[in-house]
Each structure stands twice: as C-alpha cells, then as structure tokens.
Simulated assay, not measured.
Amino acid sequence: MAGKERPRSTPEQAHAQMDHLIALGIVAQHHMAQRLGLNVTDLTCMGFILEAEGAGTALTAGDLAQRANLTTGAITGVINRLERAGYARRRSDPGDRRRVHVVADASAAERLSEVYGPNYRRIAALFADYSEEEIAVLSDWLTRATAIMGASLEEAREAEAG
C-alpha cells in the first residue's frame, strides 16, 4: 500500500483506535508475561533492563524502581523473581559496592524474542506497506505521543505523591 491513498479518519476516530490498541496491548502483555513465566510488572522491568542495555547502559536497582514506579522494596522482589526465572542478575558496581546494577542474562533477549518474534515480524510486514515518508510521520507521531504519555504519567505520580 506504500504511496497509495489511505482511508480518511477523523482525529476522534484515530484516538479511539489508539485507545483500543493500548487496551489490546495491555491484555497481550499479560498473556506474554504468562507465557514467559513472569507477571506483567516483572516483564515490564525486564523490558526496561533490555532497553537500557541496548543503549549501552546498565540500570541500578534504584533506576529500575523509578522507571517502574515501584518502591525499592518492591523492586527487590522483582529482581529476585527475574533472577529465579533466569532473566536477569545483580552485578555490583565496581565504583560503588553499595550500588547494584541489574543486567540481563545472556539468554533473556532470545527467550523474549521467541515469544514476541511472531508479532514483531507481523509489525515489520505492516511497516513494509508504508513509504519512508509515511513511516517518518508515524515515527514522529509515536515519539510525540510517548512524550505526552510520559508527561501524563509524571503528573499522575506527582498527584499521588502530593
């Protein structure tokens, strides 16, 4: 469909479609977590760990707690479960022995890819239907929408804390 005329949609219709996608994504995450022997919070944290490593950094336990909006006590439980399941491990920070980094097990990305791979391949095929210019617009929209969702999350956290 690259370069072909697309169906018209109003912003309200697109917003409703986005809400549906988000809801379906939440349900899918629960299912994927079950398949991997995790709960959705642990799977989310594993995603943060892999994302950080992909960017060339390792998260501290505190960083992970902040990203997941969990207490340090709760993140200890998450890390314990990820270690028991063979997805992650603790690594002492050589510069500060009190600090612990959480790193992915060597097989973690492959194990997650086995479950997520079919969906990623379908999404890749969907992107192939779009031109480079259309993908640039989609990428821009997703980036900006992510920033809006992040700001909304921060507002909710501040309201909860205050």
Results as ranks from 00 to 15, higher is better:
Arg67Thr: 15
Asn69Asp: 15
Thr72Asn: 10
Thr72Ser: 03
Thr72His: 08
Thr72Gly: 12
Thr72Cys: 03
Gly73Lys: 04
Gly73Tyr: 11
Gly73Asn: 10
Gly73Ile: 10
Gly73Pro: 03
Ala74Thr: 08
Ile75Glu: 14
Ile75Asn: 15
Ile75Ala: 01
Thr76Lys: 10
Thr76Leu: 05
Thr76Glu: 07
Gly77Glu: 03
Gly77Ala: 02
Ile79Asp: 07
Ile79Glu: 04
Asn80Thr: 11
Asn80Trp: 11
Arg81Met: 12
Arg81Cys: 01
Leu82Glu: 01
Glu83Gly: 03
Arg84Tyr: 08
Ala85Ser: 02
Gly86Thr: 04
Tyr87Gly: 01
Ala88Asp: 12
Arg89Met: 03
Arg90Leu: 02
Arg90Trp: 01
Arg91Val: 14
Ser92Cys: 15
Asp93Asn: 07
Pro94Asn: 08
Pro94Lys: 03
Gly95Asp: 09
Asp96Thr: 10
Asp96Ala: 15
Arg97Val: 06
Arg98Val: 10
Arg98Asn: 01
Arg99Phe: 07
Arg99Trp: 01
Arg99Asp: 00
Val100Ser: 05
His101Thr: 01
His101Met: 06
Val102Met: 06
Val102Tyr: 06
Val103Leu: 05
Val103Phe: 01
Val103Ser: 00
Val103His: 01
Ala104His: 00
Ala104Leu: 11
Asp105Thr: 03
Asp105Leu: 14
Asp105Cys: 12
Ala106Ile: 12
Ala106Thr: 07
Ala106Glu: 06
Ser107Cys: 11
Ala108Asp: 04
Ala108Tyr: 02
Ala108Met: 06
Ala108Leu: 05
Ala108Cys: 08
Ala109Glu: 01
Ala109Trp: 00
Glu110Val: 14
Arg111Asp: 07
Leu112Glu: 09
Leu112Tyr: 07
Leu112Gln: 04
Ser113Thr: 04
Ser113Lys: 03
Ser113Gly: 04
Ser113Trp: 15
Ser113Val: 00
Glu114Tyr: 14
Val115Glu: 02
Tyr116Asp: 11
Gly117Phe: 13
Gly117Ser: 10
Pro118Trp: 09
Asn119Cys: 14
Tyr120Gln: 04
Arg121Ser: 04
Arg121Glu: 00
Arg122Trp: 00
Ile123His: 12
Ile123Asn: 05
Ala124Gly: 10
Ala124Trp: 00
Ala125Asn: 12
Ala125Thr: 05
Ala125His: 13
Leu126Glu: 15
Ala128Leu: 08
Asp129His: 15
Tyr130Ile: 04
Ser131Cys: 09
Glu133Arg: 12
Glu134Gly: 09
Ile135Phe: 05
Ile135Arg: 13
Ile135Val: 12
Val137Lys: 10
Val137Tyr: 02
Leu138Gly: 13
Ser139Gln: 04
Ser139Phe: 08
Asp140Glu: 10
Asp140Asn: 11
Asp140Thr: 10
Leu142Met: 08
Thr143Trp: 07
Arg144Thr: 05
Ala145Pro: 02
Ala147Cys: 15
Ala147Asn: 09
Ala147Glu: 08
Ile148Lys: 06
Ile148Ser: 10
Gly150Pro: 06
Ala151Val: 11
Ala151Leu: 15
Ser152Ile: 14
Leu153Asp: 01
Glu154Tyr: 02
Glu154Phe: 12
Glu155Thr: 00
Arg157Cys: 02
Arg157Gln: 15
Glu158Ile: 11
Glu158Trp: 05
Ala159Arg: 14
Glu160Gly: 08
Ala161Glu: 03
Gly162Asn: 13
Gly162Cys: 14
Gly162Trp: 08
Gly162Ile: 12
